[in-house]
Design a protein around this nucleic acid. Structure first.
Lengths: 131, 131
DNA sequence: CTCCGTGCAAATACTTTGCAAAGCG
DNA sequence: CGCTTTGCAAAGTATTTGCACGGAG
């Protein structure tokens, strides 16, 4: 693996990602970080996100409405995704349901992580829909 | 919602999707269906997949390695995704872990479906990696 | 002085869409 | 006949990559 140097911009990506709970897209991070780094390019944000992900410092939530969403919280937790507005909310995941163990036993696979998402309509959108 | 007519090509997409367990991409379906429908276009496959999804007859597994994967089995089940070769395998999901109920209670959301994926290395890839 | 990090722009690659023709009912 | 479906090709869009230069160690 290539050596990783410290870089102000990469640290800024990581720290911003850790400080928000909105599970941003690369573009959102780019626009937000431009305030502090006006010359920051979108390509660099993408490169740094991939690198941080490879290092295991961040994770991706998956693609929502065509754009990948990132998460600075790498603990084992679930997500709720609103199908109307795209909002992503963390959800605690208590205990182990034994699914991974069963997969290993039944399929002979090695499980590295689980990814649990609930999809539906968030509180705000429910209100909007009634209005 | 627009009226939906019967169409041989759309039915072929649905029936092929239901008959395989490999969770194909649009491209895979297109190549496979070309045997029977040489003039079938990729655009039509995409359009029909979206429409079948809207009708609730199929579901998507999400994007794996940049391509969306589809599933003709719409029962509530989990997936194992191999991070090395991209293979997707069904996994039975027993019972309800109460997560949806908790999301409703804690977040005030409406949950329509859950999406559980395990990621890791499949049996074949584990063998390859040892060799 | 050696590599890594970055801006910029071009390239990729998947998916969607517009349009006119064809076809079902 | 009216409205859906389709082929074709073009457009769209998120993400990746090549390259040359600036910068950290």
């Amino acid at each position: 693996m290539a050596i990783v140097r410290k870089s102000a911009k990469r640290e800024a990506v990581l720290s911003l990602l850790r400080s928000v709970d909105c599970h941003p897209t690369a573009e959102w991070l780019h626009e937000r970080l431009r305030r502090e780094y006006p010359d920051l390019s979108l390509g660099t944000v993408y490169r740094n996100l991939r690198q941080l992900e490879d290092e295991g410092l961040i994770m991706t939530v998956g693609v929502v409405d065509g754009q990948e969403r990132f998460d600075g919280n790498i603990s084992d937790h679930a997500h709720f995704v609103c199908e109307r507005c795209g909002a992503v909310t963390d959800l605690e995941l208590k205990g182990d349901d034994g699914l991974a163990a069963r997969a290993k036993r039944e399929l002979g696979v090695r499980v590295d992580r689980r990814d649990v998402k609930l999809r539906g309509i968030c509180e705000n959108c429910l209100k909007d829909m009634r209005a």
